[in-house]
Amino acid sequence: MIKLILTDMDGTLLNDNNEINKEFYPIFNKLLDKNIIFGAASGRQYYNLLDRFDKVKENMLFVAENGTYVVYKGKELIINSLERDIAMEIVKIARNIENAFPILCGKEGAYIEKTDPRLLVETKKYYTRHTVVDDLTMVEDEILKVAICDFSGSEINSLKYYNDYTDKVKVAVSGRIWLDITNKNANKGFAVKKLQELFKIRYEETMVFGDYLNDLEMMKSAFYSFAMENAHEDLKKVSRFITKSNNENGVVDTIKEVALNNNVRRLSIEELEEYSV
């Protein structure tokens, strides 16, 4: 029986219009009735996720900022901070990357230095609490991660600037224009494993959904690992199953058909042939 379900947001639960399918809320209530914990595991800010799930936030699990900040039913469970000195080094490098901007992601809010219209639009999408400051290095907050908003494409542009940091921090391409840099052991998969320990939930009782490279570790943390049809090809390679795209309500339909209809009795891949990679 599945006891824990976690889904990424952008490109996964959300469609390309940034919408949650209307079917989600009745399905969430059914999961609640069955004592199945449901959570959003996202690079988004905790306060942004609270707003998106305002109707059910009292009973939601939030794995925010790529696994660095985890809250369940209003209680802080995990905080995995980034060392301040390293964060400032990362910020200083990002300032010199053409067409890219650093965002300092703290426990209390997000901080940016520039008022570039493109940056403001992207920041507002994912960081409900954000402040424009003169100097990121002067911000007083517990730092969860540094995000790089790279309008030239994170995988082909800003990623290479941090090749020398991969032994110190976790560098993850989290979207076409996003690079997230966190503490070395901070990622969604690490957070899922900690949650499994806290709630005494097994790997075989866990279901996860994702679409991009910041979901790689999370896919390895659950038997029921579903890559979206629209997912990055590298994510599909490490996922056990593939489901319909984010625009086809893949997450909610899979939860209905697999988690709520007892299609997991034997923990067998053959039971789920239509989803198999």
Rank of each mutant, 00 (worst) to 15 (best):
K22G: 00
Y25G: 02
P26N: 08
I27R: 00
I27N: 00
I27S: 03
I27A: 00
F28T: 10
K30W: 00
K30G: 01
K30T: 10
D33H: 12
D33F: 00
K34N: 15
K34W: 01
N35I: 01
I36P: 06
F38A: 01
F38V: 10
A40P: 02
A41K: 07
A41D: 07
S42E: 01
G43I: 05
R44S: 05
Q45A: 10
Y46E: 09
Y46Q: 03
Y47N: 07
N48T: 15
N48W: 07
L50R: 14
D51I: 09
D51F: 11
D51C: 05
R52L: 15
F53R: 13
F53H: 06
F53A: 05
D54Q: 13
D54I: 14
K55V: 01
K55M: 12
V56E: 14
V56F: 07
K57P: 10
K57Q: 13
K57H: 05
K57E: 10
E58I: 10
M60W: 04
L61N: 11
V63S: 09
V63L: 13
A64L: 08
A64Q: 08
E65C: 13
E65A: 12
E65I: 02
N66E: 01
G67S: 09
T68Q: 05
T68G: 15
T68S: 15
Y69P: 01
Y69E: 05
V71L: 06
Y72K: 15
Y72S: 06
K73V: 02
K73H: 03
G74I: 05
G74N: 05
K75Q: 12
E76M: 09
E76A: 03
L77Q: 06
L82S: 08
R84I: 09
R84A: 01
D85P: 02
D85H: 13
I86P: 12
I86F: 00
A87K: 06
A94P: 11
N96Q: 14
N96I: 06
E98A: 13
N99I: 07
A100R: 07
P102N: 03
P102I: 06
I103R: 01
L104P: 02
K107E: 11
K107R: 15
G109Y: 00
G109E: 02
G109K: 08
A110E: 07
A110M: 04
Y111W: 04
Y111K: 04
Y111N: 06
I112W: 05
E113S: 09
E113Y: 08
